[in-house]
Design a binder for these strands. Structure first.
Lengths: 184, 184
DNA sequence: GGCGTCGATGTCAGTGACTGTCATGACCGT
DNA sequence: ACGGTCATGACAGTCACTGACATCGACGCC
C-alpha cells in the first residue's frame, strides 16, 4: 500500500476546475486547490509551472500528434495538404473532448490571464506546424505563412464549435475555410 | 515650478527597457525600474497594470487606427478590402517605428511571459478588426475568419520585417500574402 | 493674500504566487 | 536487513500587486 494516493496530477486538475468555476480564478488560491486535492501548495508547483497551467493539460500530446501527422503525410503533398494533415490530426483528437472543453471554456473566457495562456498554446502549435512543414521541405516563408493561417483558422473554428451545438469540428473547419476562400 | 518631474510614464518605460535589456526581465524588480525613473514601486503600478505592460505602449492607438480605417473605407468594398484597409493603417503606423521595435524585440523574444503578452495584443487587434468588419455589414463568420487570417499574416510579416534588413513592412506583408495564396 | 480642493505621488501594511532547501518515510532491488 | 530513490511535506524567503491613507504643490475663488 502506497504512502500517498495516486493520480496527484489529475486530482489537482479536477480540484482546480471545480474551484475556479465555483469561486473564480483570482479568488481561488493555489493553497486551496492543493488542499482539496489532499496535497500541499508546494506539490502543486511540482506538477504545474504556475497557477494557470493546471487548466491546460493535453496540449503537448496534441502538438506531438500534429507533428507526427505532418511527418507521415504522403509524399508529394503540397504545403496546404501537409498542413491539412496536421490540423486534421488535432481536429480528430479534439473531437471527443467537446464536453470537457466546454467545462473549461467559460472559466478561460472570463479571465484574461487564462486567455493569454491559451494563446500561448496556439502559438506553440503554430511553431510546431511551421517546423514540421520545413522538415518536409516547405520553404521557410511559405511554412510560416501557411502554419500561421491554418492554426488561426482552427482557433476560430474551435471557438464556434464550442459555442454552438451544431456540426462537429471537422465540418466547422471546412466551412470556415470555405468562407475564407469565398471572401478573397 | 512643479513638484515632480513630468513624463513619469515615459521615464518608467525607458527605465524598464534599459534594465530588462541589461539584466533580463525576471532578474529586474519593479522597485528597481521605479527607482531608476525616480519614482516608487507604487507609482509604477498606477501607470501600468503589471510588470510586463510597461513594454507595450502604443497598442491601443494602433487598434484605434485600425478600426477607423475600416470604418472609413470606401463604400462597396468587400471583406478582404475592408480588412486590407485596417491592416494597412497599422502597417503605416508601424513603419517608422522599426528601430524602436527592434530594441524591444530581443527582450520580448527571450521571455515567454512577454511573448504571451504580445500575443494578447495581437488577439485584441483581431477582435477589433472582426468587430469593425461586422460594423461594415460583413457577416459574423466571414468577419471572424478574415480578421483572424489577416492579423495572423501581419504578425508573421512583422516578425520577418524586424528580423531582416530588407523591405519595408508593407512590401513584406504583400509578399507574404502572395506566398500564402500561391501555396493553396 | 488666504483658503479649500484637486491631483500626482509617497508610505505602509498586507496577501498570495512562486522558489530553494532540507527532512521524511514508504518503496525497490540486492 | 540495507542503502538508494522518489514523491511529498515543512519552512523560510522574495517579489508582484493592492488598498488605505498621508502629503503637498498647483490652481481657482473670494
Amino acid at each position: 500500500m502506497s504512502r500517498w494516493q495516486p493520480d496527484s496530477r489529475r486530482r489537482l486538475q479536477e480540484a482546480a476546475v471545480e474551484l475556479y468555476a465555483e469561486h473564480g480564478f483570482s479568488e481561488t488560491t493555489v493553497a486551496a486547490v492543493a488542499e482539496r486535492a489532499g496535497l500541499t501548495e508546494r506539490t502543486f508547483f511540482r506538477y504545474f509551472a504556475d497557477k494557470r497551467e493546471v487548466l491546460f493539460g493535453g496540449e503537448d500530446a496534441l502538438r506531438a500528434a500534429l507533428v507526427d501527422a505532418v511527418a507521415e503525410a504522403p509524399r508529394g503533398a503540397g504545403p496546404a495538404e501537409l498542413a491539412d494533415a496536421g490540423v486534421g490530426a488535432v481536429v480528430r483528437a479534439l473531437e471527443p473532448r467537446r464536453a470537457e472543453l466546454r467545462r473549461r471554456e467559460p472559466i478561460v473566457a472570463r479571465h484574461p490571464e487564462l486567455r493569454e495562456r491559451e494563446l500561448t498554446k496556439l502559438a506553440s502549435w503554430t511553431a510546431a506546424l511551421r517546423e514540421a512543414l520545413e522538415a518536409r521541405a516547405v520553404p521557410p516563408r511559405t511554412a510560416a505563412v501557411v502554419a500561421s493561417a491554418r492554426v488561426a483558422l482552427l482557433a476560430v473554428s474551435a471557438r464556434r464549435w464550442l459555442a454552438d451545438d451544431g456540426e462537429d469540428l471537422a465540418a466547422t473547419v471546412a466551412a470556415d475555410l470555405a468562407a475564407l476562400r469565398a471572401s478573397t
